[in-house]
């Protein structure tokens, strides 16, 4: 890692730490949204085992007999509830772009902006964020469709070398599709940052930000993947803790402990996501606003 990159990472960390309130808002929104998304399905699950004095703890017992039984007897209701949850997820995912925009807006200044101002600016950015979201999903869908379409071709190319080679070569289009999905996600973040901090008209600053990001795609992907990998490690650690706590047992402290672990994991996930956004903001700001209030020495900037 170059010194420039290292200092940019430090700046990103400082940027994240500088504005905790919008970050907490983002975290809070995510938690509340998640509960709203979970409720339809969990209501069906809870109703299925309402007769059991342990409540839905029986769904988590080893062997899964009652979980399987619940799915068998209530699959129609669960399917309908999942549909509602899915629609909720889409709606809340879109609404969640407002706190995301608020966070990026907050990072534009050193000062702490009043809430009403942040919300107003977030709402103002929302239509463009939704458009970026739609374009991203479209591009990602195309990438996935291409990967799936070319999967049989890859398989047939590798078949001469045996079935392992066939499956591995077949996975190449899928892996490329996955890379495409990641690239779209990174590009979407750069576009959002451009929309917020750019001073150009219309979509110009978004495309300028994309151009900046595309100048160092490997670095952007590395930071993004590092954040995601760290998030995955935290998730796995949380899963291990949750298994050890064993929520199937009746004591309510176990539920509270697992919930605390999971909240910590979601918090870490939010922080890591914010860190990537902050890093990308640093990168874009360097280019878009040469006279910005950057804490980095000008000498280091020349190495970019």
């Amino acid at each position: 890692m170059s010194a420039t990159t290292g200092s940019r990472i430090r700046c990103a960390a400082r940027r994240v730490a500088r504005q905790p309130a919008p970050l907490v808002a983002l975290f809070g929104f995510r938690v509340v949204s998640a509960i709203a998304i979970a409720l339809p399905v969990s209501t069906v699950l809870g109703a299925a085992v309402v007769g059991y004095p342990e409540g839905d703890a029986v769904l988590f017992e080893p062997g899964g007999e009652l979980l399987v039984e619940t799915v068998r007897l209530h699959h129609a209701a669960l399917g309908a509830a999942l549909g509602i949850s899915f629609r909720w997820a889409i709606v809340l995912g879109l609404v969640g772009l407002v706190p995301l925009a608020m966070l990026l807006e907050a990072w534009r200044t050193q000062a702490r902006l009043p809430w009403f101002l942040l919300v107003g600016r977030g709402l103002r950015r929302w239509p463009r964020f939704v458009a970026i979201f739609g374009l991203t999903v479209l591009a990602q869908s195309i990438a996935i469709a291409l990967g799936v379409a070319f999967w049989p071709l890859g398989r047939s190319l590798g078949e001469a070398q045996g079935e392992v080679a066939a499956d591995l070569v077949g996975c190449v289009p899928l892996a490329l599709a996955a890379l495409g999905v990641v690239a779209c996600a990174i590009a979407a973040d750069f576009a959002r940052i451009g929309v917020v901090i750019g001073r150009g008209p219309g979509w110009a600053s978004a495309s300028r930000a994309l151009e900046i990001g595309s100048r160092s795609p490997l670095r952007a992907a590395s930071v993004w993947l590092a954040c995601r990998a760290a998030s995955l490690v935290v998730v796995l650690g949380g899963a291990t803790l949750a298994i050890l706590i064993d929520v199937h047992r009746p004591e309510s402290w176990r539920l509270a402990a697992v919930a605390a672990v999971h909240l910590a994991v979601v918090g870490a996930d939010v922080m890591l996501r914010a860190f990537f956004l902050a890093w990308a903001t640093e990168l874009v700001e360097d280019d878009l606003t040469p006279c910005r209030r950057s804490p980095r020495p000008a000498a280091l900037r020349r190495h970019d």
Binding site: V31, A38, L45, G46, A47, D56, V265, V266
Partner: peptide
């Protein structure tokens, strides 16, 4: 009867992680 607290907690956790992957 007990409220479905474990299901809510576990499903909400999964939904929170999924929202992160959606970009919010």
């Amino acid at each position: 009867p007990c409220p479905p607290s474990r299901s809510v907690e576990r499903l909400a956790y999964l939904a929170a992680l999924a929202l992160g992957w959606m970009g919010t």
